[in-house]
Amino acid sequence: MTTKANFPVAAGSIVVPYGHVIGNEKWRGSEIAQRLQGKIRLIFEDDLGLVDFHISNRISILYISEADLVAGDEFKRRLVRFRNASSLGGIIIVEKTQISDQYFLAVQKLVVLELGMVLLPVANQGEASQLIIQLVREQSKDHSSNPFLPKQRSQLVEPSVFQTVQHIPGVGKTKALLLLQQFGSIHQLCNASVEELELVVGQTAAQQIYTFLGS
């Protein structure tokens, strides 16, 4: 179901009803909106600024499409403004396709290493809608257990960070799990020496990781 929001949506005072998503008006009629209908309650608002979707009072999403990536550097400015202007937890969804693949590595480094936000690649809007539904359901599970615990956000972000680490050259699911268990965060991983990485993933993978994170 899609309706118009009638409650506060200003930055820092966003109110997202339980089990809902607030979407930017520009997404009305899109494939994402159509696929979300019937799965969650989607409410549109035309005053969200840079934010594309709010999935909770604290978590917002910025969507970077294939067209955004090939059009130039404007999406980079959007990312920086999004990071600087919002106190909310930011998740960046990026379309990684055959056309945009050549730009993805640079975007990943900007989002994860320089801006310190979570990046989730998707193939298309259909896959993005499934991801949003999954994130909302994770929030709902946290809400039903204890909405006041600080772990609410970490339970959302950790799987996202895990998926991001998997995209580092030389790292798959197993190595990503080992790295996060050892270093705890992407920030700590970036500061790790080759020797420290070797102890976790071996010499070859350690050198690949160190080169990628240090370049």
Rank of each mutant, 00 (worst) to 15 (best):
T3K: 04
K4H: 01
N6S: 08
F7K: 03
F7R: 07
F7C: 08
G12E: 13
G12N: 09
Y18W: 05
V21W: 03
I22A: 06
N24W: 02
K26I: 04
S30M: 03
E31D: 15
Q37P: 00
G38N: 13
K39G: 11
I40H: 10
R41C: 09
L42H: 06
F44M: 03
F44L: 04
E45I: 00
D47T: 14
L48S: 13
G49Q: 11
D52N: 11
S56L: 04
N57L: 06
S60R: 04
S60T: 11
L62Q: 14
S65A: 13
E66V: 01
L69P: 07
A71P: 00
A71H: 06
A71L: 13
G72K: 03
D73E: 15
K76D: 14
R81N: 14
R81W: 12
N84S: 12
L88D: 15
L88K: 00
G89S: 13
G89H: 05
G90Q: 15
G90V: 05
I91A: 06
I92K: 03
I93C: 15
V94D: 10
I99L: 09
S100C: 09
Q102M: 09
Y103M: 05
V107Q: 13
V107K: 05
Q108Y: 15
L110I: 01
V112P: 00
V112K: 06
L113W: 11
L115C: 06
V118G: 10
V118E: 15
L119H: 12
L120V: 12
P121M: 01
A123T: 13
A123K: 04
Q125V: 00
I132L: 14
I132C: 05
Q134W: 07
L135V: 08
L135N: 09
V136L: 08
R137W: 13
E138P: 02
Q139Y: 02
Q139M: 10
K141R: 07
K141I: 02
H143K: 04
H143N: 14
F148S: 09
P150E: 11
K151F: 08
K151E: 10
Q152C: 07
Q152W: 10
R153W: 09
R153V: 04
S154E: 12
Q155C: 08
P159Y: 02
F162W: 11
Q163C: 08
T164M: 14
I168D: 11
G170C: 04
G170D: 07
V171M: 05
G172E: 06
G172C: 03
K173C: 02
L177R: 03
L178V: 01
L178S: 03
Q181I: 00
Q182K: 12
F183C: 08
G184I: 03
G184P: 00
S185P: 08
I186D: 07
H187P: 00
L189S: 12
N191Q: 15
N191R: 07
A192K: 06
S193Q: 10
S193R: 01
V194R: 04
E196C: 04
L199V: 12
L199M: 15
A205D: 15
A205P: 03
A206Y: 07
Q207H: 11
